[in-house]
């Protein structure tokens, strides 16, 4: 498998794994730092740099992974949309601005209505 192509296609999932690994390492470092001293003043920086940064990276990893899933789903809907247009089950977008044209809804371009007949 072409590693460059794979990385380009799956950059978000690779990034998600890197964030999760980084988050786990940060949590471990934070734990080791906190458990290494009884002085609360020395423990506080580890809570931030280890605990909170670790949580942040874990959340970022989850964001990247879930957004990759959503993008995949969007692309599948693209394929279905194209197939419906090609098989004449969905009118191609027209320039006249009929109901086929996609209206804006909350700033998001929404799809055309279709009747699967």
């Amino acid at each position: 498998m072409d590693i460059v192509k794979y990385t380009r296609n799956q950059w978000d999932r690779i990034g998600a794994w890197l964030c999760v690994i980084g988050g786990a390492v940060a949590l471990l470092v934070g734990y080791l730092g906190v458990s290494d001293t009884l002085n609360t003043g020395e423990q506080m920086p580890y809570i931030v740099s280890g605990g909170m940064v670790g949580l942040f990276l874990l959340g970022l990893g989850a964001l990247l992974w879930l957004s990759a899933d959503l993008r995949d789903e969007w692309r599948k809907l693209d394929a279905i949309d194209r197939h419906l247009v090609e098989t004449n089950r969905l009118p191609a977008p027209s320039a006249e601005g009929s109901d086929v044209a996609s209206p804006e809804r909350n700033g998001q371009v929404v799809p055309r209505e279709v009747s699967l007949r």
């Binding site: 989850a62 964001l63 789903e73 969007w74 809804r105 929404v110 007949r117």
Partner: peptide
């Protein structure tokens, strides 16, 4: 993060509804 994922989920739901939501009406027609 939560707002972003929710917005994406909502956009996909609207698009799916637009593509498949009126299958029953189409069949009846």
């Amino acid at each position: 993060v939560i707002l972003f994922l929710t917005a994406g989920r909502r956009a996909i739901g609207q698009r799916r509804l637009g593509l498949f939501g009126n299958v029953v009406e189409g069949g009846a027609a």
